[in-house]
């Protein structure tokens, strides 16, 4: 569905991404692991068109989308839940969701969009109770759900998620991840999940990539990555060598 080939991105002379290549099949949940500053967010923003790559190719459903404007990219079906949620805090929950449907909004489609909004509310019942509240007054978890709901309102085929666990209480993180798995099945979505919380991400993902200082250093199925020594040491907080000695 999405294929990235030899993607280079740099700010000025500084390389952020070097020859990144990856692919996502339809219906897959793929996770990208990596520490702070490894280039995960840059990768997502490049896919969304916010950052223009220096070289390389991004192909979505047999269509070259490299360097396309963000509004076009949303239109063809890639939606991002940005890092830090970036919801519109001084607008109401409902207005936030409505704005998610911006690109397909037409006078004749009001009903369809209303229905979609009800679907989102049934997925996240908490949002329905607070539909008239200003979005900034929601809790971190609720804001994250709103951000996901807002992205879903654009009817994406591919959903990009940037650190959905950030700034959210641990028990709510679990809830959000459960929701993600549900969405994958019920809406037949494809997802690219960027996470620092490697363990939870690998638990729900089919495959994963590990990115370090702008390069993909490892890829494999979730099981492989979970049992990989380097991944365990770097991202799961376990040092196997140390354990053996003890």
């Amino acid at each position: 569905m999405l294929r990235i080939k030899n993607l280079d991105v740099h700010y000025g002379k500084l390389y952020i991404l070097k020859k990144v290549s990856l692919h996502i099949k339809k219906g897959e949940l793929v996770t990208i692991l990596g520490s702070n500053g490894a280039g995960k967010t840059t990768l997502l923003n490049t896919i969304s068109g916010l950052i223009k790559p220096t070289s390389g190719e991004i192909v979505f459903e047999d269509r070259n989308i490299t360097g396309m404007e963000p509004d076009k990219i949303v239109k063809i079906g890639i939606s991002q839940v940005p890092e830090g949620r970036l919801i519109f805090k001084t607008l109401t929950v409902e207005e936030n969701l409505l704005l998610g449907s911006y690109h397909r909004y037409k006078i004749g489609r009001k009903k369809e969009i209303k229905n979609d909004m009800e679907t989102i509310y049934s997925l996240f019942p908490k949002l329905k109770d607070r539909r008239k509240q200003l979005a900034g007054t929601l809790s971190g978890g609720e804001q994250q759900m709103l951000a996901i709901g807002r992205a879903l309102m654009s009817k994406p085929k591919l959903l990009l998620l940037d650190e959905p666990s950030m700034g959210v209480a641990p028990n709510v993180v679990k809830e959000i991840f459960v929701h993600l798995v549900e969405l994958l099945k019920s809406l037949s979505l494809t997802m690219l999940l960027v996470e620092q919380n490697a363990k939870s991400a690998l638990k729900i993902a089919h495959r994963g990539y590990v990115i370090e200082t702008g390069r993909i250093v490892l890829e494999g199925s979730s099981e492989d990555l979970l049992s990989n020594k380097d991944v365990q040491r770097a991202y799961l907080g376990r040092d196997l060598d140390a354990e053996v000695i003890i």
Binding site: Q80, L86, I87, F88, T90, L91, L99, Y105, A151
Partner: peptide, 22 residues
């Protein structure tokens, strides 16, 4: 919606772009 999109742009231009707002 256009009016709300205008407000959205002022609150967070990046998020607005991700919503497909020009």
């Amino acid at each position: 919606l256009l009016g709300r999109a205008m407000k959205a742009c002022s609150i967070d231009a990046k998020a607005a772009r991700l919503m497909g707002i020009n």
